[in-house]
Amino acid sequence: MDRLAAMRRYFLTRLAGAVPTLFIIVTLAFFLIRAAPGGPFDQEQTLPVEVMANLQKAYGLDQPVWTQYGHYVGALLHGDFGPSFRYKDFSVTELIGQGLPVTFELGSIALASALILGVLIGIFAALRHNRAGDYAAMSLAVVGVAIPSFVVLPFLGLLFGIYLHWLPVAGWEPASIRHLILPVVALALPPLAVIARLVRASMLEVLRSHYIRTAIAKGLPLRTVILRHALRPALLPVASYLAPAVASIMTGSLVVESIAGLPGIGRYMVQGALNRDYTLVMGMVIIYSALLIVMGLLVDLLYAWLDPRVRLDS
């Protein structure tokens, strides 16, 4: 298949192109975080000057910033994210390695549910265009977009945890789906609502197109018309929204993980930045940017699959 080969070549080319992008992000983040006032060892009580000097020396902060940058990038090229400045005896790799699976599980379940339910609700609303079902679905979608997760999650915890005793309010146990349900709902709701609205609008447009008229005139059952002929073109706007959706879920997980007390990496982003934990913030920036770059790439490939007129060679 020519097209598969073209897709693979495109993927590899773009992946190679992502390296300089990532390098620029690393450089910018490195100097920006150091430009922020204060440092990792500033506390309410000022440390004695000698102690401070020793700490600075131990972590290499006494050296000129360009030398620090050189050391950091050198270590990074060997896959070493460096030691955390605030979590003593922990390397950034260990911290992220512990928290990432939790965040990844939470985020991917939230994204998958937002996609599946959003698409289904969007199709349903389009088929019930301007009828009660359509209005109900779209009103719910407005609620989903408008109410932030830090309101939704405590509310759900109160309702299902404290009043009904169905689900735990917060906390985490490995391999426990029950602990994930409420955070996933809170995290998935905003992107789910956006996806439902996108699918409804694009499905309505696709259903008015000439090729859908042809498909109906061919005497195909409605199910085939929708799933085989209308769904793929109707998903194009969803593909464009995928990268922002991942970003929204990632930032949402910062809040949701703190409220639900989940041991993910979301808290490191906020705490790391507030603590001026330089290496931890850098590690988080690299993980998040790499994820977003890969998402962007997958979206391009998804486009090519959704619409064969999209050309990947150039």
Binding site: S209, Y211, T214, R232
Partner: peptide
Amino acid sequence: VRGSKLTMVFQDPMTSLTPHL
């Protein structure tokens, strides 16, 4: 009967076929 015994050919062949199939 629609699509089998009773069929239709449309005006604009450019837009009347599904683009991704």
